[in-house]
Design a protein around this nucleic acid. Sequence first.
DNA 1: TTTCAATATCTTGTATACAATATCTCCGAA
DNA 2: TTCGGAGATATTGTATACAAGATATTGAAA
Lengths: 217, 217
Amino acid sequence: MEKAKNQKGRSISKHIEETLRADIASGQIDAGERLDETKLAERFSVSRTPVREALNRLVAQGILVSNGRRGVRVTEYTREELAHMFEAMHEIEALCAGMAAKRLTLLARSSIEAAQAECIKAAEANDLPGFLRANEAFHLEIYRATENPFIFDLASGFRQRTGPFRAKKFSTAEDLIASARSHEDIIKHLFSTDSAAAASEMGQHMKDTFMSILAKM
Amino acid sequence: MEKAKNQKGRSISKHIEETLRADIASGQIDAGERLDETKLAERFSVSRTPVREALNRLVAQGILVSNGRRGVRVTEYTREELAHMFEAMHEIEALCAGMAAKRLTLLARSSIEAAQAECIKAAEANDLPGFLRANEAFHLEIYRATENPFIFDLASGFRQRTGPFRAKKFSTAEDLIASARSHEDIIKHLFSTDSAAAASEMGQHMKDTFMSILAKM
DNA sequence: TTTCAATATCTTGTATACAATATCTCCGAA
DNA sequence: TTCGGAGATATTGTATACAAGATATTGAAA
């Protein structure tokens, strides 16, 4: 039974929403698992009401799926749906890279380089959690470099949904290093402001990632 | 005070959600307008609970925005935000056109042609509501032609949000005809399966639309 | 008259109670 | 034993009640 801190005046339901989102993204709550309102209410020591609010929002975001009166579950994907999801992610990432290349500011450039440096460091140390964080930051910085908050939200929202699957991909130290090296190619084209090449390179990077994930499922 | 039909076992809150979404998209509820839970509850002859559920989901979809304890309002955009939103829409439309061109099935092709025929018909009859419906269908068919449900949801969700603004653009009969004609160019490239050209043509179409909207605001 | 603060009122956030529907269990018949 | 249905149980959907924060109002002092 954990404490619902309700810190900084943020409502309880918001806190629950974020906690659940994190639990799902990190895989602590499995895909397909059913979420019981009463149990969650007990876990957070609150009534069902704020729990329901949180669940509703997560449903609206596509993270959970509602089956009418048969409760809500963590969205589960067939192989085909996964392939579609990855294809969509791939297209969006490429789009972001293309936009970013067109309008790369010095600030964005340095942020991306910093994130990439972290990736390399974590990969060489074979630090998986560290790499996942850094990799996340790397991609987010590219979304941010589009300078378009809608695109940023879109891409980061989608990234959240693919998170649980991507996390499983990286098993060996070689995987990490290969991925980090692939980033270098993306950066090269990004920084040369060759939009099409950057998009294409990012597309390739994501395609590699997704193919190797699908192969394992 | 309207009747909450609760038809076909769909929950009341779902019904409210859809009704509000339609009201906002059609402009019956203005941007920036505050939505009072109690008033809405009275309007639908239900308690505040299902109203809150609906509002929460709409907030999660970005259609409404919540100001903590100061209620929810219809999301309002500055000129700059609008420009960003249109840019995002523009990129997504182009992406869809590009994907659609790559894998156009006969079924998709005929659906798109049918929608375009409706556009032309409505435009020549200067039937604004009819044109808006047909135009909507035309774009949705292109999203569908990507054969990727995630992309479809993404694009149609975004289209919903830009709806209230796009509706204001078409004032004269010439506007309608010009827009319908622009569709023809998109189709030409789509059907030639020239992905890059289709994307670029769609991008131009959307850019024209958005520039003329922004000019009026 | 203007300004500031205390109070009243209104609105949202949460808790609890009740209703409706789905799922489970158990028992009897084929 | 297996199948099916009636009742029991559990879970979600909705209503109402209460708590807490925000806005509006009132009144007094400068």
